[in-house]
Design a protein around this nucleic acid. Structure first.
Length: 739
DNA sequence: TGCAAATGCTTTTTT
DNA sequence: AGCATTTGCA
């Protein structure tokens, strides 16, 4: 349907029912526009509807400009969805609304104002990897033991300090002035200096620096206080102290702050989220109104009851009772697998069964797990069964080596002072500039307190090897020439020029390896991203492109139009819902995780379980394995405590003696017998396993000729001449060896 | 001096 | 899968 028709349709609908369709509590939350409001919104209570209607109500009934509303969501995807729904409600398209994540909003502010903090406006954003690089440098310079001061740990502590707006100077006094903490505070200071020099901010800085900006520049603060007449914050239970201070500062002028959250869904304590923000809101804002949304519209009664029973085991929570008018529905099915493959097989065959028997499209299913590492086996099994799936993992497309390399080039072009990026690519592809040359450049830069790139420009004063000098000049020429023209060029054309002139693609081609081919594929894929940016971005500059890429994750991607099963971590599932949900790996040590038990974080894990259960609308399957191999270690894990917290009447726990029954049941289901036949047919096709190994050339009935890249059990990764790289199960497809 | 291959290690959750 | 470290070669 035409978009316009869609809008019109909505407008007619809206005129009549826009606010009538809300229940009395939801209406209360929507109409309470003035002053501080705390909306305690249980899972599935129509929170998003309330937020979007409140936005629309402010604009339509209160005459507020949509640009004077600041709405904070947890992910970029949620922000996009909120924008769309608000636009639908208002029947209008708006450009540049302030509907975004904390981080994106801060970037937007800082990109206009950060010169007041003595940064340049085109600052880059360092991700976790970049942080590690900088921290390692600091450790080296202070000559500290990498074991005692693991970069990851130190960065974690530093990050938590930033969440609480504690700078390097205050670090030791706040966290203890023993040797360890003193050193960490020293590292912290050094790290911040380096970032400043590189004109870079990390994720936590984005928040902290914005607060700092407001605290040191009353005029700037006043401007934004005035601008944002109404503030909405979603997922408030997951805000940290810095974010809380930021919001409080902004809301001071008008006081119209509406926060929405659910203390039972607070799952980001490890990232500095402070549950006290929501528990103490009424104290901090004494004149605040509280609206509780307790009717759940999402799940069946069985699922909701189970979730309530589990979370009731937590002590530290606001009292609330989530209820539903929905039917009881099926009780929860719990499957005990022999191992992780058995478990995955249960998941795959159940999906197949429901897809066949109940005609459910694949998009109705989600498989949730505690850690990303658990996805692999499930993925394999889905693939083997020909079930389309999509992984929403925390790992970004942008985290691939080749993409990070290209981004480093782009950052270097935008900001040659970014030492981390310049150092990353100075010898990628190989230019014959090794460790020795590097340290010479570093020394020179250090001695003259210049950037590393400046040292490269002065290569003739540092190096007398003509080869190194020539290569270095070639590199700096490329960067400088692109830098000069970057405002006239599209991002795509800049990237293409880098691909060619840096020799990056040539080097990959020369490698003549399958791996290199897939990297080239990814680089091509990257071009379609830049093209999309060049066409659609609001601010079509290289600077704008970089700001966006560093904040977008795969969690933010839309896969709605695809008919695929969704695979994601329990954290990633927050805010989403699916008709059928699988929670896998329900074992002690996995979920709750070993670490959380050690650190006494049981309650947060339980909330995570609550989040998982409440994602399900109609059916919930829980599974665990008697034996599991993870990170190369085989363990026998006890059944998760959370399973035991679900009362007997709500869950069908698959006892060992029941399993035969289960197997019989499955064998008689038409789909399963079909699958079995399928399997038999296949085994005829299977090749002599001894002959299949990396490098062997094979022929596939559909994809044609290709080369085996890797073998993992029966899953083969094959690079086809025409079809590109595919993963194929040797059991399922007739492959011929052609050599 | 630079580089490629081999080996060992790592992993909770993410903006 | 990707990283750091080591080793051997040119």
């Amino acid at each position: 349907m035409d978009n316009r028709d869609n809008l019109k349709q909505n407008m007619i609908y809206n005129e009549q029912f826009k606010y009538d369709g809300l229940n009395p509590m939801q209406q209360k939350a929507v109409f309470a526009t003035e002053g501080p409001v705390l909306v305690l919104a249980g899972a599935g209570s129509g929170k998003t509807r309330v937020l979007t209607h409140r936005f629309a109500y402010l604009v339509e009934e209160r005459g507020v400009s949509p640009y004077d509303i600041l709405a904070i969501t947890f992910t970029n995807k949620a922000a996009r969805e909120m924008k769309e729904r608000v636009e639908d409600l208002l029947g209008n398209y708006y450009r540049g609304l302030w509907v975004s994540t904390f981080h994106s909003a801060c970037v937007r502010i800082l990109r206009m104002e950060i010169d007041k903090l003595d940064f340049k406006k085109n600052f880059v954003i360092y991700d976790t990897m970049d942080q590690q690089v900088v921290m390692k440098e600091c450790l080296e310079e202070l000559d500290l033991d990498r074991e005692m001061f693991q970069p990851r740990i130190v960065l974690g502590k530093m990050g938590r300090a930033k969440d609480q707006l504690i700078g390097p100077d205050r670090y030791a006094s706040e966290f203890g002035d023993d040797f360890l903490n003193k050193k960490i505070s020293e590292l912290y200071g050094m790290y911040q200096d380096k970032l400043k020099k590189n004109n870079a901010l990390d994720f936590d800085d984005l928040i902290m620096k914005t607060v700092q900006l407001f605290q040191t520049n009353p005029m700037v603060l006043h401007y934004y206080q005035n601008k944002f007449k109404y503030i909405l914050v979603d997922e408030f239970q997951d805000t940290n102290m810095a974010q809380y201070v930021l919001i409080s500062l902004l809301a001071k002028e008008h006081g119209n702050l509406c926060v929405v959250g659910d203390d039972d869904q607070s799952i980001y304590g490890w990232r500095g989220a402070d549950i006290r923000n929501i528990l103490g809101f009424e104290k901090d804002f004494p004149d605040s109104r509280v609206v509780k949304l307790e009717q759940n519209y999402r799940s069946t009664k069985s699922i909701l009851d189970a979730a309530n029973m589990v979370v009731a085991n937590n002590m530290d929570r606001k009292v609330k009772k989530l209820w539903t008018d929905n039917q009881g529905g099926e009780i929860i099915q719990c499957y005990q697998g022999n191992n992780e493959y058995d478990e995955a097989n249960f998941i795959a065959s159940t999906i197949e069964k429901l897809n066949y028997e109940e005609n459910r499209p694949y998009s109705q299913f989600a498989v949730l797990y505690r850690t990303n590492a658990q996805s692999r086996v499930i993925e394999e099994m889905l693939m083997k069964n020909g079930i389309p799936y999509r992984i929403y993992s925390g790992v970004r497309f942008y985290d691939r080596k080749e993409i990070k390399d290209i981004l480093a080039y782009l950052r270097a072009v935008e900001n040659p002072a970014d030492d981390v990026s310049v150092k990353r690519i100075i010898n990628v592809p190989r230019r014959g500039i090794g460790a020795k040359s590097m340290s010479r450049f570093e020394k020179y830069a250090e001695a003259n307190s210049e950037s590393f790139f400046n040292a490269l420009l002065n290569v003739n004063k540092i190096q007398n090897q003509s080869r190194v000098e020539a290569q270095t000049n070639k590199f700096t020429d490329l960067i400088m020439s692109l830098r000069e023209k970057r405002n006239e060029m599209t991002v795509t054309s800049i990237v293409e020029k880098i691909y060619e002139d840096s020799g990056y693609i040539d080097a990959l081609l020369a490698e003549d390896k399958i791996e290199a081919e897939s990297r080239i594929e990814n680089l091509k894929e990257f071009l379609s991203l830049t093209q999309d940016f060049d066409e659609n971005a609001e601010e079509k500059t290289l600077d704008g492109f970089l700001a966006r890429t560093s904040l977008e994750t795969t969690m933010d991607e839309d896969g709605d139009d695809m008919n695929t099963v969704s695979l994601m971590t329990l954290h990633g599932a927050k805010g989403l819902e699916f008709p059928v949900v699988f929670i896998s790996g329900m074992e002690e040590g996995i979920f709750p995780s070993y670490m959380s038990i050690q650190e006494n974080n049981e309650e947060e894990e339980r909330r995570l379980c609550y989040v998982g259960i409440t994602r399900a609308k109609e059916r919930l399957y829980i599974s665990h394995a008697v034996q599991r191999t993870l990170y190369g270690r085989t363990n026998q894990n006890a059944i998760s405590r959370f399973i035991k917290e679900i009362p007997e009447g709500l869950i069908d726990i698959d006892k060992p003696y029941d399993r035969k029954k289960e197997v019989r049941k499955m064998q008689t289901s038409p789909l399963f017998t079909g699958a079995m036949m399928h399997q038999k047919r296949k085994s005829k096709h299977s090749l002599d396993p001894n002959r299949i190994k990396a490098g062997v050339k094979v022929k596939h009935p559909k994809f044609g000729v290709g080369t085996v890249v890797s073998v993992a059990g029966e899953i083969l990764t094959i690079a086809f001449v025409d079809a590109g790289i595919k993963k194929i199960s040797s059991e399922f497809v007739k492959l011929e060896i052609t050599e």
